[in-house]
């Protein structure tokens, strides 16, 4: 696999607690990779290190062969950015309308003119079926609509990689499926590389090209979801069975368990 995003030996500790202890991960371009693992194991920390919200203690992150800092500088000089981040709670600005929330990164971090921004944001809202909600504020939107606004804001800068931190938290099963469908659909349409953190096992495997299991500060398993069944005898099986990954997954991927 040609790695578009390459992480090597990533380490991060908080006080005495070593959260990431040499994470290695390769992610192919325009693929969906899901990171699974127990709560508090460091999945979000890994995502935040990639997004530069946390400074890793050691290790390298390369995007398309370039160290992440270089890639960021290059990206900031043109219209697109390397990374976008979709937060667990959407992190929308309450005082801004749907339109303004989506337009925010273009207005503040690019040199695009007003007309260009208007056109791009309107097109994005149309694609996300949010045109009717353009003037509404986050407090007036449903959970699913807020997710779509957050996704619109994450995609408006045409990022190469979108990081999703538990995008289905707090949603009912039906809405969870629609969010996953939305991610898969927009990934095809916009061609970004997606890196997800999710606890929705096995639902999330349906849209994943690759699953990475984080445990003990390292990636202990990385491969296609179909390969999870062959790993059934390892420690991963314990985690998956606790995560309710049983008969349903076997039926889904045709494996035996």
């Amino acid at each position: 696999m040609d790695a578009f995003l390459k992480i090597r030996g990533l380490k991060k500790h908080f006080g005495d607690k070593r959260v990431l202890d040499g994470v290695d991960l390769d992610v192919a371009a325009a693929s969906v990779t899901t990171i699974i693992g127990k709560s508090g194991i460091g999945k979000s920390v890994l995502l935040k290190c990639i997004a530069n919200l946390l400074q890793p203690d050691a290790g390298t992150i390369q995007l398309d062969g370039q160290a992440i800092a270089q890639s960021r500088r290059r990206a900031n000089s043109d219209a697109g950015v390397s990374f976008s981040y979709m937060f667990q709670n959407n992190a929308l600005f309450d005082s801004l309308s749907t339109f303004d929330n989506v337009a925010l990164p273009l207005r503040e971090a690019t040199k695009l003119g007003r007309a260009d921004i208007q056109q791009r944001v309107s097109a994005m809202l149309q694609q996300l079926e949010l045109s009717d909600a353009a003037d509404r504020f986050p407090g007036e939107l449903s959970g699913g609509m807020k997710k779509r606004v957050a996704l619109g804001r994450a995609l408006i800068t045409k990022p190469q990689v979108v990081l999703f931190d538990e995008p289905t938290t707090g949603l009912d099963p039906e809405r969870k499926y629609s969010v996953f469908e939305m991610i898969a659909d927009y990934r095809e349409r916009f061609g970004f590389t997606a890196l997800l953190v999710s606890h929705d096992i096995p639902e999330v495997f349906e849209i994943s090209d690759q699953v990475a299991w984080l445990d003990g500060g390292r990636i202990q398993f990385c491969g296609p979801p179909e390969a999870l069944n062959s790993e059934a005898q390892t420690a991963l099986s314990g985690f998956l069975s606790k995560a309710n990954y049983g008969r349903k997954a076997s039926a889904q991927f045709g494996g035996t368990q």
């Binding site: 919200l53 976008s84 709670n89 992190a91 925010l104 503040e108 971090a109």
Partner: peptide, 13 residues
């Protein structure tokens, strides 16, 4: 707390 400040950072703001 709502990660809005982190969100600004990820948007290069």
């Amino acid at each position: 707390n709502d990660e809005q400040i982190d969100a600004l950072q990820t948007m290069s703001i």
